[in-house]
Design a protein around this nucleic acid. Sequence first.
DNA 1: GACCTTTCAAAGGTCTTACCTTTATATTAT
DNA 2: ATAATATAAAGGTAAGACCTTTGAAAGGTC
Lengths: 235, 235
Amino acid sequence: MDNKIKPIKKRRLSEEVLKKLQSMIIDGTYKTGDQLPSERELSELFQVSRASIREALRVLGTLGFLDSRVGVGGGTFVKKISIDALINPFSEILGNEKELIIEMLEFRRILETEIARLAALRRTEEDIARMERSIDLMREDIENGGIGIEGDTAFHDALAAACKNSVFEKMLLMAKGLLVKTRQTTLKLKGRPEKGLEDHIKIFNAVKKGNSKLSLKLMMEHIEKAQADATVKNF
Amino acid sequence: MDNKIKPIKKRRLSEEVLKKLQSMIIDGTYKTGDQLPSERELSELFQVSRASIREALRVLGTLGFLDSRVGVGGGTFVKKISIDALINPFSEILGNEKELIIEMLEFRRILETEIARLAALRRTEEDIARMERSIDLMREDIENGGIGIEGDTAFHDALAAACKNSVFEKMLLMAKGLLVKTRQTTLKLKGRPEKGLEDHIKIFNAVKKGNSKLSLKLMMEHIEKAQADATVKNF
DNA sequence: GACCTTTCAAAGGTCTTACCTTTATATTAT
DNA sequence: ATAATATAAAGGTAAGACCTTTGAAAGGTC
């Protein structure tokens, strides 16, 4: 046969445009803050319909690379790239893929322990105050018969803020979103809330003292305990 | 003043559609493999133009949640959700945001050390063979005057595969993409290639023996060495 | 009856055109 | 000088017409 295998991928026009614009942003043709040509001009330049242009712009926009404003002085602009742009804005959509949940838990463990370690090294007075508030919040809720989930979350968020690394912070945010169901399940188990609170207090003291090794160790144990039950049974 | 603050966010119609479809996928209205109504039907259902529908579908498609085929038996289908869908498909776009690079390096350090630890616990014969090949590759390139970047990358990839956690694997992939320039810079420094190779061999032996603690420790040192120069000077 | 060819229609892909909405600025009137 | 008004550019939306792809049904041939 003369025919070779056909890897002929027909791309949509909007994808071509997408790729092109992407590479133009990467190579610096359009830099942060720059204005792109208007949709009508792009349509003219790429020789495709405005609809195709818009489909590409919409994707780039949703992904956090572009920003559009109507009116005079409006147009499409290249946004400052942030970590948010790395994480899929629809992460929550993950749902119940079991293997992934196990893997995500593993990921979260290492993420949180490192956050605790860094937090011990970098926390400010403000961070410490925020952690204290979260602990109080959790205590109060538990005393009133709640499971303290709000304070629990607040504590981990406060730690993440204290570690002064936006990548870790965002990663944790993503992981949390994905594992929200898992966490709720875990916390509902009898006795967990009180023990969780104890753990938080210990971690807090270690972080406050700036003892990074201890912070890491305690967080590791905290997560491992919390996950021990969850991993196999609850899904 | 009677006027309250205006949180009036006018959303684009395509965004409304996007949100709605997203929530329908999350809540299980449309499950993996299901076919969505045709664009024309959706247009009718949502009472918006087909263009708006398409803009929403294009975003969901690019994000990896949907898949479209033309022709008879074609249509728009819900894809199986994978980890890939969590990472922005355009991560490479990051570029030279300095603060982010520092933070990403910190992230990569913890990622790679944990990968090394897990790899020591889970590596198969196949993984070991793959690591060996990468080491040979690096050695040969260095002997021929190269910087061994290909083998270097291959080694880290092999480790990632050996850790048997797709989340770590994908995260590393993302981090690598973002830091590609950084890595090249680092490797070009005099003397680095040989030292890097030595490190790899040591790590390899630890992983092969299944010594997870040592693997972690060696990788930690390896990364720290490699990053020590890079962090401040080279950007 | 088995097999090939043709026809067909649904669904995505694309283009065109027209109109709406927003909004800073220039113009005009008071 | 101030306030009301017109303007035009740019994004947002709609409607409709084609094009292309592609599996399956219909029909014909051996």
